[in-house]
Design a binder for these strands. Structure first.
Lengths: 217, 217
DNA sequence: TGCTATGCGGAGCGATCTCTCCGCTTCGGA
DNA sequence: TCCGAAGCGGAGAGATCGCTCCGCATAGCA
């Protein structure tokens, strides 16, 4: 699973790039993904260009700003997430949601550098909404099959992803798989047999509120 | 619950500060805690000094570097955490661990700005070890009273704190209490009645490994 | 009250970051 | 093969950051 936009093709129907330009664009994305994962988003653009083997001018000709480069990486991740969720819709025993949760953990862990932007980037809001829509279907199916408790909310799934972000970022360089243990515990707590939860779920309006807040920036 | 080092007194038995200097020091700490929580650790030192109502020179006379200011805030938080855990040792029904987990969540949420340093700052390693030692006692007590499953590990508690960090950081400005819902789900998954966890706990050696890695930086 | 150690403010230094600009190079269609 | 459009590299502009330095102010003891 990788980006669905092939080398040389740019989203939005722009004129195709020249061969060398398209290659350099991809090398920049690869280099950025690597150094961001290893050293965080604070790595300088000069360093990204150096690793990609191009000049900084080339980077800025292809991406209007450093942020745009990060957004493109996030966009590709969101495309992967939507694909992952779409595949899970085929699962018939109600375990699709768990499958997507583990898969989302893998994607977050493999691209640690961009995690902080994944859930806070309004450039990819359409994809995020689509992803969330599929998750809500999977959640219903999981409940119908008795795999997830009835009082679980979609926002509980959101919270779990954000929690995994914390585990992954804190265990950087220490353990690559610790997040799985946490996810397993959370899912155990979401089973129908688990104890009642007194704490109410996150208000769904807060999710909307988050979007407004992001746009206001 | 607040710092146990009163205004004018500095840890380590240094000569007491002049009254005005001690006041300014405290104002700097308060200002830093505020702006870090609101806008993150990237806020400039000039801004911290401005909010505190002092010059940047004053900040640097009291703290050798911006990092030292952050470390002091973290140190005070760790002192609070140890006090919190120590109090919980008095609880006799085995619910002390849960009490500390919620309390730690509160402290993390109230000082969002410093969270990322809380679990990655080797200046406070002694306090962190003490905190962790108490947690292990509380975990044993919780198991003895049948409140927590026998196969739960101390590292599961660590993971939970790191997970709460992710929730708190991602919901900044959206929901102040969402982390409680997640914590409730995790604890539900840690009850003796919850389903078996296949994923093994985090290797305790990884915790040691993390310390080595931090020192190597 | 007078004296001195201590504290204070903020201009400015050096480092670093993002992003631009322009002379030169390369691709690829005719 | 030739030529114009497109792409390239990297020096450097402009902004911002952490931190220092020094002339002046003040607290607190005698």
């Amino acid at each position: 699973m990788r980006s669905y936009v092939s080398v040389g093709e740019v989203a939005g129907g722009d004129k195709p790039l020249r061969r060398d330009a398209a290659e350099n664009r991809q090398r920049l994305l690869d280099a950025a993904a690597t150094v961001f994962s290893e050293r965080g988003l604070d790595v300088s653009v000069d360093e990204i260009a150096r690793v990609a083997g191009v000049g900084t001018g080339t980077l800025y000709r292809r991406f209007p700003a450093k942020d745009a480069l990060i957004s493109e990486l996030v966009r590709q991740l969101m495309i992967d997430l939507v694909a992952l969720a779409t595949e899970a819709l085929e699962v018939t025993d109600g375990s699709g949601l768990e499958q997507v949760m583990y898969g989302t953990g893998e994607i977050q862990a493999s691209q640690r550098g961009c995690i902080s932007r994944m859930w806070n980037d309004d450039e990819t809001e359409v994809l995020k909404n689509e992803y969330r829509r599929i998750l809500s279907e999977l959640l219903i199916s999981a409940k119908d099959h008795g795999r997830i408790r009835d009082d679980a909310a979609l926002s509980d799934v959101d919270l779990t992803f954000w929690a995994l972000r914390g585990v992954i970022e804190t265990t950087r360089g220490v353990s690559d798989t610790a997040w799985r243990r946490h996810l397993a515990l959370v899912i155990a707590g979401m089973r129908p047999g688990a104890e009642q939860i007194v704490e109410p779920p996150m208000d769904e309006r807060h999710v909307e509120l988050a979007k407004v807040r992001l746009h206001a920036r």
